[in-house]
Design a protein around this nucleic acid. Structure first.
Lengths: 209, 209
DNA sequence: ATATTTACATACACTAGTGTATGTATAATA
DNA sequence: TATTATACATACACTAGTGTATGTAAATAT
């Protein structure tokens, strides 16, 4: 019954895909390796052969997509960029489109959003938090840059701005995940980016103390 | 060892409080009745005497606070209101303050936000979704009203507006829950309401088709 | 061609959690 | 005061899940 190396890789991918699907539906902690195995059409032994435990499987799933997420998140941070706000708009559009059109990408987001607030120390690995914090830092840099280039008011609180961007982005994705039929994410992308920018332009002024 | 009626009510409340704390930290499905019981200083028997199972305990927790949430959510929806936008601002401020200052209220929000996207049918009861949907509908009404009173542009997409309000509110609360030391929620309440209103005023126009 | 890994499947031991059944001191009641 | 119902605690039976140990056919190395 020994499989060839290619076959082994196929089952490994199948486990990863099934894990991604189930994790995104039920959350990581309430999905058993048993269920993943049976839905992937393999035995639990296969899962334990490819991955040490549930969290290593989770790490494998994350690392398969983290490169793409990093790439997207970092796109607008270059200090030399002459139109940082334009870059930011592109990034947001890109995120919207990807989330709307690619299920696996959407599921990764869903897991991250869902798992982010769990507090059991043994459970959620540090990697998720790092991932989010990094992309937040990227956006602060982009906004600072846009301020210097005169694209945003000089008294904008960039940290608050970056947070609001994240929040609205996450919120919109969550809402779309909750009710995909409600509206077309890609179509509304323009309007939503406008909404974010109007917040940046008209609110979130720094407070003096 | 039989307790007096008052004592029984005290243990019941103690179980509810402990359940609220643990559910908000770990999520409902990954918190055991064993842990709740021991942390509440009672036996599992006590929990099973007061509540049929975990989800009935959860219902009890929800119903203890849903009145307050309903009250808050419904505050700005009166059609006869002459200043609906002002009411909405008050509501948002009130929510911010409550979430910032009252731990139990904050924990309820945390549970709702966390549990909202779980998909195991046996698990999350319909009540949470109903709760959120109702308050969304309230906000749509408030915005419609504000439009008629000339407080908002006539081509505002009120449904999108209501969603954005929810998303930003939830996002901000989530962010505050994630990092309470980061900033004072109550203090930033003003600025955040401003941000929301600027979105309503300058974006989210209805699309023609 | 033989030896050795590999890629699993199966079986086992263990734990955590659930729900229920039973025991019991005592508050409430008649 | 005797009886009954209450408010639990404890014990038990059961299930689901984990991790590990072992078996094994076939791919691969020698």
């Amino acid at each position: 019954m020994r499989r060839t190396k290619e076959e082994a890789e196929i089952t490994r991918q199948k486990i990863i895909e099934t894990g991604l699907r189930l994790f995104s539906r039920q959350g990581v902690s309430s999905t058993s390796l048993m269920e993943i195995a049976s839905r992937a059409g393999v035995s639990r032994g296969a899962v334990y052969w490819h991955f040490k435990n549930k969290w290593e499987l989770f790490e494998a799933i994350l690392s398969r997509y983290s490169a793409r997420i990093d790439e997207l998140a970092g796109a607008g941070q270059r200090e030399s960029e002459s139109d940082p706000l334009g870059r930011l708009a592109e990034l947001l559009h890109f995120l919207f489109i990807n989330v709307a059109s690619q299920e696996d990408f959407r599921n990764i987001f869903k897991i991250i959003l869902h798992e982010r607030f769990m507090r059991r120390e043994e459970d959620v690995p540090e990697r998720i938090r790092e991932l989010i914090d990094k992309s937040l830092q990227d956006k602060v840099k982009t906004l600072e840059n846009a301020k210097r280039k005169g694209q945003l008011p000089p008294d904008l609180d960039t940290r608050a701005g970056a947070q609001v961007i994240h929040l609205m982005l996450e919120g919109y994705i969550q809402n779309w995940l909750k009710n995909p039929a409600d509206h077309d994410l890609a179509e509304q992308s323009d309007r939503f980016v406008d909404a974010i920018f109007s917040v940046l332009r008209y609110s979130l002024k720094e407070t003096r103390h």
